[in-house]
Design a binder for these strands. Structure first.
Lengths: 263, 263
DNA sequence: TCCTTACTTCCATTATTTGGAACTTAATTT
DNA sequence: AAATTAAGTTCCAAATAATGGAAGTAAGGA
């Protein structure tokens, strides 16, 4: 099993239990106190206390003077190495830059992981970029351009496995809220070769995305051109579909050369 | 270089052992095969195999089709949340932008963690930024501007604890290679209120940095103005020292307001 | 001061990890 | 093609670490 599912995070094993806890704290809006975590994690006091202690010892969590737990900086160092070495990102980078030059809009690179899209890179305009605000973020697959494009490259059996696990959240009035309508659109995306996000994740934001996959489909991602709805009409977005698909094609070609034809 | 740690990274406990392994793989130059890791980690075959399996199950490592282990993408998602919520960075961001506008050079924000500086933010010019290439990176404290500035804010007893643990690596001819010369310079930095990096970490790169600390010294970091030696003469760098110190002062003032005066 | 709430420590019990060895699979040589 | 070597995987009794109920301590009111 190459990719870990959302389900994959079993809470068995010492590491599994600790990762559940780490997720709980990192996904919170603000630092959590011991009692808050106690209410969320179904663990006895003593056990939870020691588990949090271990995570703090390792720098995965930080405990401030007011006794609140927040994500630790150790994660940053680990992640920067993960990102710096990621082969897919390294291969894609120049092609993303070219697509950005061609379109003048923000370009994203994402990879499917379980039922989430993790953004690996972003090329945007002049302003001093808040890259991290996007890179690394896990977004749902059912309401993002890259996500839906990726789903269109998923073999039918994997797609059937994935769909029941989705929890549809209505981010905007345009968000898919059930598997049926999503599945219908995925059919269209397969034929067209590209996917649109019609303000489904964030109001006022549109994108067009093209899927990227390895021959054996063990790896699936996508590239997108994103921008504000006031500037990107659906007609203009349609024009960027072909450049996006060509960029995806070039990245796939280079992956085949660099990583071998099987994958 | 293996320079991260501090007393924190004990290899006792299940999590500690797994983190040692995770560090080993993330710090490697390239993906490692099982046998490579076996040679590096002092673990029996069976034990190592199960440990790696757990890390892969949790998405902290990834195992490719050729049986090579690489850092996993789960780390990216965790880290992006750690970064997005970091209070110090959020407070500092507008002040970094202002310093960048004033100097026209690259501005860095870093925090001392053990004997490493972890870069938390970066503001640089127009080019589509490779932020992650710097953000999150752990660099040694003894050869970076932010690092030496941070050391100058460390209480004497903490500094004495830290020094013997340093492993001096001669990155360039100008790098400090022993505690004595470093200690002498730290004395100068304390008086001056700012630190220079005279091409000590990377040839051709200079910077001036000012320390940032909380009242109780539980938190120590720094801000720097960095640029190529051909453009930043030592004289020009000297001019940026005051703006850097004023930026540090503003950040500290705001931290005192937002996080309470004790810290 | 007493009372409540929040957090921390203790330790006999329980569950997980350990690691040597046997086993399977893949690659290389004869 | 068979034999040989190397690489990776699985097994299970013993060793070790995690568990969790309960008792202890500290902080913040009334």
């Amino acid at each position: 099993m190459a990719q870990t599912d959302d389900k994959g995070a079993r809470d068995t094993g010492t590491l599994g239990k600790l990762m559940v806890l780490l997720d709980l704290v990192t996904h919170a809006e603000a630092p959590l106190r011991f009692t808050d975590i106690l209410a969320l994690a179904r663990q006895p006091r003593g056990t939870l206390h020691r588990q949090l202690g271990h995570l703090v010892d390792e720098g995965l969590l930080e405990l401030d003077a007011e006794g609140r737990y927040a994500p630790g900086l150790r994660l940053l160092d680990l992640a920067s190495r993960s990102w710096a070495r990621n082969e897919f990102r390294l291969i894609a980078a120049p092609h993303l830059a070219a697509l950005h030059r061609q379109t003048g809009e923000t370009v994203h690179l994402g990879v499917l992981r379980g039922s989430s899209i993790i953004y690996l890179d972003k090329v945007e305009g002049h302003q001093p970029v808040r890259m991290y605000s996007q890179i690394g973020n896990a977004s749902p697959c059912y309401c993002t351009g890259v996500g839906k494009a990726a789903l269109s490259a998923l073999p039918a059996d994997k797609l059937r496995e994935l769909l029941p696990g989705l929890h549809f959240h209505r981010f905007t009035p345009a968000t898919h809220v059930n598997a049926e309508s999503l599945l219908t659109e995925i059919g269209d995306i397969v034929s067209a070769g590209h996917a649109y996000d019609r303000e489904e994740h964030e109001a006022g934001i549109r994108c067009v995305a093209a899927p990227i996959w390895s021959d054996d489909r063990s790896f699936i991602g996508g590239v997108s051109v994103t921008g504000p709805a006031y500037r990107l009409s659906m007609e203009l977005l349609h024009e960027w579909a072909v450049p996006a698909q060509m960029t995806a094609r070039k990245i796939m070609d280079e992956m085949r050369i660099r990583l071998g034809p099987r994958r």
